[in-house]
Design a protein around this nucleic acid. Structure first.
Lengths: 194, 194
DNA sequence: CTGTTACGAATGAACGTTCATTCATTAGTA
DNA sequence: TACTAATGAATGAACGTTCATTCGTAACAG
């Protein structure tokens, strides 16, 4: 067993537990137990629980960005770009319910709020999935294809419903199949297009 | 000082503290302190913290339903009904940021999940704001005015964006004035209409 | 090859803190 | 006086974190 195995075990255990029960329902002792390690061992890899939580988030973010940027239809019409990003995002979250649940926990917590604040204030300058959507919106507005609304409002109109629907899917309240995803994508496009 | 005064004080204090800091950031001791009472006194009025939390939720729910049902344009066209409910809901949440924040905390917690599950499984039969929207959607679908999508999806399309935008407003990321609310309402209508 | 030493990852009992809840006591009222 | 409401110190469970110790392994010496 190499070093990174233990780290991976801890990440996996923490992700599952937190996604399932939230930050406060996932004590370090239980994370350790699930990772078949000792409580203290976690602190060999992560300074404290906060660091672990943020590390987990970045783990997911990286994979999400990778998924979105692979095969991105650069230069194609705005509508096509939007459908592409929306679909990729949706399908990624549906096939990684653990990641989705974790992200939900994260964004509905002080961790996520400050992350969002930093992002909106431009405190980081990486090209990621979020940027992709923002660029689509800016381009769409200047081409008079999209409604002239604040970017943050367009973002809420475009992906707010998707997140709610995916949550309902993971909770078993609705079944999201391909045709339905398509219809929802179109509905969101209707919301933001002129 | 009458009985209900103390109860009101406790409710107010708990609401403020929980809305601001979440359930885990609002210890009973601090709620008591803020309500100018002793920790033990809370237990004269509420069996335990869970009961207090659910009581708080129903407190808000009642006022919200009251606000929506007052002046409801019964019998008017679907679109008008939708604009009415949407506007009322939006304005209520904007003028009661404490209630909004509390509801957010509630719905993004196990309390809210089970509440939602009960509702969707029809475990309660009251006529409230939620029902109002559902009735609008059912009527709109049968009149071929709205897209033929599952009710739960229509609900996400209609109010998902609003909740996100209101959150961004309370966090100071965007300013929601009347014209902008109007535009967002129309965008959400575009999303659900055929 | 064998025996010894050094290293550091892993351990888990223990610590200090925080919290919800209890209950013996007190204050207030009729 | 008799009864209820209010109190807040006390309780014990749960948690994140620490640290003295263990133990497998790698490096080295003979």
């Amino acid at each position: 067993m190499t070093n990174s195995d233990k780290r991976t075990d801890i990440i996996q255990a923490a992700m599952e537990l937190i996604a399932e029960r939230g930050f406060h329902g996932a004590p370090m002792s239980e994370i350790a137990q699930k990772a078949r390690t000792a409580a203290g061992t976690i602190y060999c890899y992560f300074e404290n629980k906060d660091v672990l939580i943020n590390e987990l988030f970045h783990e997911i973010e990286d994979k999400l960005i990778e998924a979105i940027l692979a095969g991105y239809p650069e230069g194609k019409p705005i509508k096509e770009q939007f459908f592409y990003v929306f679909g990729k995002l949706c399908r990624y979250l549906l096939t990684h319910p653990l990641h989705f649940r974790y992200m939900e926990q994260y964004f509905n917590s002080p961790y996520g709020i400050s992350h969002r604040r930093d992002k909106l204030l431009g405190k980081n300058v990486n090209h990621d999935g979020h940027d992709a959507l923002i660029r689509i919106f800016e381009e769409g507005i200047s081409q008079k294809i999209l409604k002239d609304l604040p970017l943050i409002v367009l973002a809420s109109l475009a992906i707010g419903p998707m997140l709610y629907v995916i949550r309902d899917h993971t909770l078993g309240f609705v079944v999201l199949d391909e045709p339905l995803i398509r219809q929802i994508t179109e509905a969101c496009w209707d919301a933001i297009k002129r």
